[in-house]
Design a protein around this nucleic acid. Sequence first.
DNA 1: GTTCACTACCCAATCGTTTGGGTAGTGAGG
DNA 2: CCTCACTACCCAAACGATTGGGTAGTGAAC
Lengths: 345, 345
Amino acid sequence: MTGIRPGSVTLKDLAAELGLHPSTVSRILHGKAETARGAAAPVTAQRVRDLAKKVGYSPDPQATSLRTRRTHLLGVIVPRLSDLVLAVMYEGIDEAADDANYSTFVMTSRDDTSIQRRKMEIMLSRRVDGLIIGDAHLDGNILDELTERKVPFVLMNRAIAGFASATCDDTLGGALVAQHLWDQGHRDVSIIAGEPYASTAVDRTQGFVSRFRTLGGTIPESAIVWSRFDTTGGHTAADSILRDTHRRPSAIFAVNDFAAIGAMGAANSHGLHVGSDLAIVGFNDTSLAAQLPIALSSVRSPMLDIGRVAVKLLLDVLNEDAVESVKLLPVLCVRDSSDFTWAAR
Amino acid sequence: MTGIRPGSVTLKDLAAELGLHPSTVSRILHGKAETARGAAAPVTAQRVRDLAKKVGYSPDPQATSLRTRRTHLLGVIVPRLSDLVLAVMYEGIDEAADDANYSTFVMTSRDDTSIQRRKMEIMLSRRVDGLIIGDAHLDGNILDELTERKVPFVLMNRAIAGFASATCDDTLGGALVAQHLWDQGHRDVSIIAGEPYASTAVDRTQGFVSRFRTLGGTIPESAIVWSRFDTTGGHTAADSILRDTHRRPSAIFAVNDFAAIGAMGAANSHGLHVGSDLAIVGFNDTSLAAQLPIALSSVRSPMLDIGRVAVKLLLDVLNEDAVESVKLLPVLCVRDSSDFTWAAR
DNA sequence: GTTCACTACCCAATCGTTTGGGTAGTGAGG
DNA sequence: CCTCACTACCCAAACGATTGGGTAGTGAAC
């Protein structure tokens, strides 16, 4: 690293220094093995590589992609990075992209479809090679448009039928919780279901409901409360559930840890002790769950891997390989917030 | 938006369509008012703009920056995005950058100086216009190197003497907590101090200690425990504090909300009720603090603004304006975890 | 002593913009 | 009529890399 700043030295400089033509230097430094072989004598090649390293040559990505029409840039769009779940997935993306020599742009949409559109256009105008979409809405009309415009993309976290995606098996995750709560003796349960436009919310809820019914339980429609994914959303939802005097559930399944934490707060203010008076189970097993004053049961979803897989899928799309959606397996982690046999009461 | 994909139509296409020269079109579309005036007749200018809009022309950023040597790209480096504090700051950056027509690259370093170096090189090789550094270590030797290489950069969140930074007034924040705990009657306090290489940790601790001593209190060295910034770090630190039978504090100040949450977990397992047996105060007032089963007192730091200010500072540096570090004001939010007058016991 | 196949290179166009420097044409002033 | 200052443009050379297509030179085979 002798160059004051990368970019100070160009291919032409190297060529001039060595008395070669820039094209020759280019082939040596960036060509595939075969091209490089044909391009220069081994000694010359070595001289070039040595000098390049010595002066800290690094190719100008702008120039390269102007010519090649490839930016080695991936666009990532998520609702928000202040949602730990998405942040962790993004860390997975970042790692995988880095390994594959790509860089990523990440933008946030706050789950607002017009912002979503705008940010996507920004990314496309930056000429990203492809898009990882982490904020897909179930009425995915933007996606059809992208397909038509031949923009390479894959979905992450949320799935939409007909598009390649990297997700957790949310239906199974919901089912695991239903089974657990049923086994613990809970017969009256409510669900804090999340946003109805997100497949994560819908699938987890649906997985829960269908398993619970299969086991012989009943879940009235009124027991399913849609909500935001954050703590205040969970608080509000739980509050409305607990205020209903007709039917007070013995357990609540929140499709997201933060909503679950909000629900814990609400339970508290209703004078209920989480764990003994009311069971609560979350989803994602974020790093907080186990550390809470009352440890939260949660379904662990492989967030980091979801991000990594999303990159892999997108790279496959870019290589025009066939791609299949990937559903990663969730694991239930039972903790104090739901580890209490209700039947024993 | 008629173009199938942005990038399909070029300046040359527009020019050909209108029977003009590309340079004329360029001046009309991208020139400053004065240049544009001299470049074309108002009618022509309007024709050009109309066509550009109609066919959805968007300039190729690669070509532009190849020529101008400006990428309109800002590099951001933070320890991790899965730390809510940094994630929120990044959202502030993203907003401000967007407003100023810049895009951002964000990379994570896990506070590892060698990764830090590597990621910075990646960003520089991408030719970012400047860097926002959110993971500065107090022994900031990388920074001297960057200065020497004439890389424009500013610091965020963590400050280092001699470099422009956007931070919270951490010393004051610490002092606020000291005052509060003292007023509540606490005389035996411990500090979960965070990582010693981070100015946030050091300044908050120092601000606390010096105010507490000014008030007449004593804080032995052994009452200050350095730790990681996350929940497990806080748990471990609190555990070691509470296990000490010689001296059990009535209050703990954790310089970070997550560490505070970990400390709550530890208090729990020691059979202490947070709020009445032990006061705990965190820092940053993340969105979780108020929602926890026992609401956490915390110092609110303007995280979003810190991000926004960082962008502003960096843009100033890029414009070669003089820049001054900015310290934003923290506000103490008292909640159940410390709202109990000790003196009344 | 041609022809042939290599080897080890060079040449020039190209990607899409920007920008310093022209230059025809027009109308006014002297 | 000539000069002068505009106006409204055009021209061409960059920026740094890539890539299809050369071409001199060498050694061997026929």
